Simulated scan of single mutants.
Amino acid sequence: MPICNQIQINNSCRLIVWKTSEPLEELLHSVSLTPKEEVKLNSFGSQSRKIEFVATRCLLQLSLGENVLIENDEHGKPHLINSDLNISVSHTKSYVGILIGDKYTVALDMEYLSDRVYRIANRFLSEDELDNIDEKNKILHLYQHWCAKECLIKMYGKKDVHLINELKIAPFSPGSSTFSGQVCRADFSETYTFQYLQFDNHLLVYSIKKANSY
């Protein structure tokens, strides 16, 4: 499970991406699972989902130690046990990534770049956002918007949010080093800045924000 990318974003936030090439049996030898985690693992029917689950915990334990555990709240948002750090997790194809922040809220999303995004673009983008899409870099630009909106959901912490009406991405070009978006709800309104990486036909978008700053 070689680390393919590790970035110290600032003194408090670290991004780590691993490529999972090992079979499940080999990964299981590298991790300590609690009885609750073993039950969760066995509940997955897909072998790829099992690998993602175990690989995430391998990466977490190698980064923070075996006593640090990860649990999801009622909204699916991950939280660390035995640590005050914040975490965001994403996985796609054969990659798993974690973004860890100390006193920062963090969000991370990774996607494999494919033309399937054309079929669903109008489900998550407003007309104004669609009009802003660069035709020369259409797949990348669409996925930048998609990943950013996934990050907004993770920052907000709840999934009952409307992708078009309540998550807004400000106009930007696909080559921009940063771009921004906003959660717009009656009970919550906050703007976030995004950065991204491209590797092996994948896109990774992340956002960090000082905790309790709003």
Rank of each mutant, 00 (worst) to 15 (best):
I3N: 04
Y156M: 11
I208V: 11
K36V: 11
Y143F: 12
L15K: 04
Y214M: 13
I81S: 14
K210M: 12
G175K: 12
H29M: 14
E150Q: 05
R116P: 00
V17E: 10
P174Q: 10
A148D: 02
K138P: 01
S213V: 13
M155E: 05
S176M: 09
A121N: 07
Q6C: 13
S12Q: 15
I164T: 05
S177E: 15
H91W: 04
T105Y: 08
F44I: 10
K50D: 06
S173N: 14
Q8R: 11
N137T: 07
Y214S: 07
R49L: 14
T178S: 13
D73F: 03
S207I: 00
N11T: 09
K154W: 08
P171R: 01
T191Y: 09
K159D: 14
T92I: 12
Y206M: 05
S83Q: 09
G65E: 06
D73H: 08
S207C: 02
V89F: 05
T20I: 11
I120L: 15
I169M: 09
S30C: 09
A186D: 15
I153A: 07
L140K: 02
K103P: 03
F194H: 04
I153G: 00
Y95N: 00
A211T: 11
L33V: 03
K154P: 00
D84W: 04
L64N: 02
F44S: 00
S12P: 05
H141E: 05
K50Y: 00
I70H: 04
E74W: 01
E129R: 10
K77F: 04
N86W: 01
V89D: 04
